[in-house]
Structure formats: C-alpha cells, structure tokens
Amino acid sequence: MNIIGKVTHDAQVRTTTDKRQVVSFSVSVNDSYTNKQGERIKQFTFFDCSYWLSTGITKFLSKGTLVELSGRVSANTWTGKDGNAHTGLNFHTSQIKLLGNVGQHTNPTEQKEPVTADRDNGTDDLPF
C-alpha cells in the first residue's frame, strides 16, 4: 500500500528492549471533497509510522516534509489512562520517498528527483 502525506512532527529514533533501532514518526494524509450542499469538506487521517532499515533517514523526516510511503497498515486499540478506548492506524514502512518540504518548491517543475530509502532490497539511495 502507498500513502502520500506530511510528517506531523520530527522523526525520533527509539531503541527496543532487544537493542534494535526504529525510526518513529507520524504522517497526516489529507483529502477533501464537495458535499451535496456545495461545501468543501476536509478529511485528515493520521498514521503512526515505523521504519526499521536505517536511522539516517531521521534527519530528513522533519515536520511538514511531504513523503510517499510504501508498506502495510495495521490497526491498534488501547485503553487510555482516562479509561476510554482509543484506536489508531500504524503504518509499517518499507520504502520512503522524500517529496519535499512545505514551501520548499513553489513550482512543481522545480522539484528535484525524490530521495528513496528501500527496505525490500536492502539498499539505500540516501546520501549517507
């Protein structure tokens, strides 16, 4: 599955109990449509994302960066400290394409080729 959205906060590296490192970040996917009354309706879907291949990508995943992600989605449910049930969407990322930062490119023709990190083949096209 592929999604395109904006990073909602700077990515962070976490270390698991078995000493593995994972990059954690979240992405907002925005959509809009016009209803029968002619009103523009905006919808936002938030994904908590994890990326296990390379922690070097962290410096490129800052708030507002437009990314295209490939991977799989899973749902998560939990009970909060307040006792209420909560649900969320997790995106297990296998490939990241950096499409740019907010306001970085005003003209789409000026945009450079996206940078890609790919988990599937174990290669990294990132400049680090």
Results as ranks from 00 to 15, higher is better:
residue 1 M to F: 09
residue 4 I to E: 02
residue 7 V to E: 07
residue 7 V to Y: 07
residue 8 T to C: 13
residue 8 T to G: 12
residue 9 H to G: 13
residue 9 H to W: 05
residue 11 A to N: 03
residue 11 A to L: 03
residue 12 Q to A: 15
residue 16 T to A: 06
residue 17 T to L: 14
residue 20 R to D: 03
residue 20 R to K: 10
residue 22 V to S: 04
residue 25 F to K: 00
residue 26 S to R: 00
residue 26 S to Y: 01
residue 27 V to E: 08
residue 27 V to A: 11
residue 27 V to D: 05
residue 33 Y to C: 11
residue 33 Y to D: 09
residue 35 N to Y: 03
residue 36 K to G: 00
residue 36 K to N: 09
residue 38 G to N: 09
residue 39 E to K: 11
residue 40 R to D: 12
residue 41 I to N: 07
residue 43 Q to I: 08
residue 45 T to F: 04
residue 48 D to M: 03
residue 49 C to W: 05
residue 51 Y to C: 09
residue 52 W to K: 11
residue 55 T to I: 10
residue 61 L to T: 11
residue 63 K to H: 04
residue 63 K to E: 12
residue 64 G to K: 04
residue 65 T to V: 13
residue 65 T to L: 07
residue 65 T to S: 08
residue 67 V to L: 00
residue 69 L to F: 09
residue 70 S to Q: 12
residue 70 S to Y: 13
residue 76 N to W: 05
residue 77 T to N: 10
residue 79 T to R: 10
residue 79 T to D: 09
residue 79 T to W: 10
residue 80 G to L: 03
residue 81 K to H: 13
residue 83 G to Y: 01
residue 83 G to E: 02
residue 84 N to I: 06
residue 85 A to N: 04
residue 85 A to K: 14
residue 86 H to W: 11
residue 87 T to Q: 14
residue 87 T to V: 15
residue 89 L to M: 08
residue 91 F to N: 01
residue 92 H to R: 02
residue 92 H to L: 10
residue 94 S to V: 08
residue 97 K to G: 04
residue 98 L to A: 13
residue 98 L to K: 03
residue 99 L to R: 04
residue 100 G to N: 08
residue 104 Q to E: 03
residue 104 Q to H: 12
residue 104 Q to G: 06
residue 104 Q to F: 10
residue 105 H to F: 15
residue 106 T to W: 14
residue 107 N to W: 00
residue 108 P to F: 01
residue 109 T to E: 15
residue 109 T to A: 15
residue 109 T to H: 15
residue 111 Q to E: 11
residue 111 Q to G: 04
residue 114 P to R: 00
residue 115 V to I: 15
residue 116 T to S: 01
residue 118 D to N: 01
residue 120 D to E: 14
residue 122 G to S: 06
residue 122 G to E: 00
residue 122 G to H: 01
residue 124 D to A: 07
residue 125 D to M: 09
residue 126 L to K: 05
residue 127 P to I: 08
